[in-house]
Design a protein around this nucleic acid. Structure first.
Lengths: 332, 332
DNA sequence: ACCAATAATGGTAGCGCTACCATTTTCTAT
DNA sequence: ATAGAAAATGGTAGCGCTACCATTATTGGT
């Protein structure tokens, strides 16, 4: 048993009902070209009466642009991408574009497959996270007649447009901050660095900065899977079991850091005197904890907005570095 | 200056290059109908060589279904909808469907506009949050030849398909639980109930249950805007300033409850002996706090999965109640 | 070797719309 | 009034693909 409710009304039927030509209906509906007020009323009345909804599939095929913007992002659970989407969403909508998305789960092969499937919709632009893509993905995107925006990173060579900030600089500044505060036995708790390449860039840059200041990373605990509050808590527990004398820990992001923070609360480890905690992202929740989380705030919503603006304005290829802000909270 | 990279390759060009007819290429690409192995190799070689990407706009217009599923959701920042999308995403992808989405910001008028714009893509299905829609939205959806799924609620009359649980039952069970635990002076901290109608249903049902047990709600603090950890903290602070003798507070969701929890931690209010806290949603973070949050866990990912399955299977109209689970944490 | 199945292939009419051009109607200035 | 410009409208060829039908090549059973 199949559930189809009724055949869709077509523009031709509206034209017939309104007693005008198809092109007239099209002009009225798009408010493009000239037509009289009387005609417009007749057309709109027919549209209303028949419940006509334009078919954008046909419209797109007949004209040029799809006004579709494809987002191929690693995860939806990660608030970072939700924020970027939110930022872009508003701007796109104001400019009559529509967002389509697909989730890669941080898998480059899936990204390639999803980009291919997105390109089949002939989007105005494809938005991706970061610079690390498979060869196949890059080839397709180069060949495609659409804009490409790489988000949340500027450390590398962009395909076309890029909007983000430097993850390497974020790692470096975090390290400088912690050293300046006098922490000497620093550890790291992180998640899957191979897949989340931006976290990997922060990590290596953090680590290198410590080393070049002759204060190398004492110990680290890296979980193979995705980041989460729970994994952050567990990671810190394990790290401290091995290296109880750490005086500070750098986390791969705020979710992880929050887990570490909760672990300290539960175990009565006083922050930051016994152990300092530093995160990354600047999530809202980190501002409301009893002690505000020391972290780096990233302009996620703005990244989405700027990316969308560049696309709708068809701006020339460029890299926009929106920077970040170090938040001196109470945990480090 | 306009940036177009190259005109897209068409199926006709592939046919030409492979030395076969257009229909043969189409059959090979869709692996539908019959063709010889030799032909398939020739076609695939040409596809590869030219970098052909099928145009699904054209394909959809020529055939029937768009294989597009439209999500019109209130918010992306709210993890609830991200979870639902994640649940649906996998199933849809396995069945070669694509998710398109738009965000209403809990505004019914925006929902109406967005539904209209989504219907223009002739989606296979439209997924909405809850039962409360404008008259215009309902009219459009009834007239549309696509499936409609209302998510996250089953208290009401569904347009077509519905997948969720009873928010009224959730409010009722929360009240029963708190009464059973012996709390007598119960308060409520919530957010915008007019817009988030599901939170409104939980609230009124919670309140009625208390009243019918002759233990009416003592005080409440309701914030006009969206929910957040910060607003939860602030709400509890204000509520306690007015009614310091409360022994338990019910929050409109876990984000809000977490804010309340942090407030208590910061003020040294011991939980649950001095004040009990009860949330709603069963967010992961609530399990990792020093004291696990008492709350109701909702099957968000499963709701997305089931919704997607019903749509791809073109199941008959039905309401699926996936229930919820009361979590006896340590905060109430 | 011969006929019926069956497999493989090509041609082509739309899908519903927009872009473009041709035509008709209305307006404006003399 | 009347030419000339401007506004309003209609007709129709595609956009790139798929569904359908017609045609040709191949197969197997006798």
């Amino acid at each position: 048993m199949v559930f189809k409710y009724q055949a869709a009304v077509t523009l031709a039927q509206v034209a017939e009902a309104a007693g005008v030509g198809e092109s007239t209906v099209s002009r009225v509906l798009r408010n493009h070209g000239s037509f009289s007020g009387k005609t417009r009323d007749r057309v709109m009345a027919a549209v209303e009466r028949l419940g006509y909804v334009p078919n954008r599939i046909a419209g797109t095929l007949a004209s040029a642009g799809s006004r579709l913007v494809a987002f191929v992002i690693p995860s939806l659970s990660n608030i970072v991408f939700a924020d970027v989407l939110r930022g872009a969403g508003g701007t796109l909508e104001e400019n009559q574009h529509q967002a389509v998305f697909a989730v890669t789960d941080y898998d480059p092969e899936r990204e390639e497959a999803l980009v291919a499937s997105m390109l089949a919709w002939r989007p105005t632009a494809v938005m991706l996270a970061g610079y690390e893509h498979t060869e196949g993905t890059v080839k397709m995107l180069r060949a495609a007649s659409c804009r490409v925006v790489e988000l949340l990173d500027v450390d590398g060579v962009a395909l076309d447009l890029a909007v983000g900030f430097s993850n390497r600089a974020a790692g470096r500044e975090s390290a400088h901050f912690m050293l300046k505060r006098g922490y000497r036995r620093i550890g790291y708790v992180g998640h899957d660095l191979d897949r989340d390449t931006r976290a990997g860039k922060r990590y290596s840059s953090f680590r290198e900065t410590l080393s070049s200041d002759r204060m190398p990373l004492v110990d680290q605990e890296i979980h193979a899977g995705a980041s989460s509050v729970e994994i952050g808590r567990l990671g810190l527990e394990r790290l401290l079991a091995r290296s109880p004398d750490l005086d500070a820990v750098y986390f791969s992001n705020d979710d992880m850091a929050l887990g570490g923070y909760f672990h300290c609360l539960a175990r009565g480890i006083s922050i930051p005197s016994q152990l300092a905690i530093f995160g990354y992202n600047g999530l809202d929740i980190g501002r409301v904890t009893p002690q505000p989380l020391s972290t780096i705030r990233t302009p996620r919503v703005a990244i989405g907005q700027v990316a969308a603006q560049l696309v709708v304005a068809n701006a020339p290829p460029q890299v926009v570095d929106l920077g970040f802000q170090l938040i001196e909270g109470a945990t480090a």
